[in-house]
Amino acid sequence: MEWIFANAENIWRLTRDHFALSLPPIVLGLVFSLPLGWLAHRYRWSRGALLTVSGLLYTIPSLPLFVILPVLIGTKILDPINVVIALTLYAVALLLRTVTEAFDSVSPEVRQSSLAVGFSPLQRVTRVELPLALPIVVAGLRVVSASTVSLVSVGSLIGVSSLGDLFTSGFQRDFPTEIMVGIGGTILIAGLLDLLIVLGGRWCTPWMRPARS
């Protein structure tokens, strides 16, 4: 306990860093998955390619990817951007299949009817298919969010600071309290993001709520 109070400032800084590293991959993952997932849903030729590549991508272990990225794209080895890019790739890999299936799930009847009443092709995607795909996308995004928050910790092994620093240092010093604080903080961030996603999802899909009557 004393240790926590003594290091409160440092813990708070690491928590903020952790949060700041988690958020962009989740948001970017969503932003990239939506159009790619729609492509995979819409065109047979793209479906196999996109889903296979994204499946393979997720099998690359995170640590080597963090190390290789700077070599591939020419960023500095300690730059947090490496972690953000790597985790965005994972987010897309995880989310792409879900988004594809979410678009697949929109009923043919609703598609026919939106065509019949005169939505243009673009309007059909943005005003009909996308909103109706949202509930499934939100479910997928919750998985991505939890996975991203836990993967951010790995970044501390290549010197990008986050709550993961508490794990490494706790292990080195054989000091369980530090590790527990790191785990607690990670769970807290994951919980907070999950709550935000659930609330945001609910706000975007008012028709899914039970009847007021």
Binding site: V110, Q112, S113, A116, V117, G118, F119, V128, P131, W207
Partner: peptide, 21 residues
């Protein structure tokens, strides 16, 4: 076609209403 559809009413079986509106 899009303009044409907007000036012709269409009613289908099972209503075809947009569930999110």
């Amino acid at each position: 076609p899009v303009a044409l559809r907007r000036r012709i009413g269409y009613v289908m079986q099972n209503s075809g209403l947009l569930p999110h509106r």
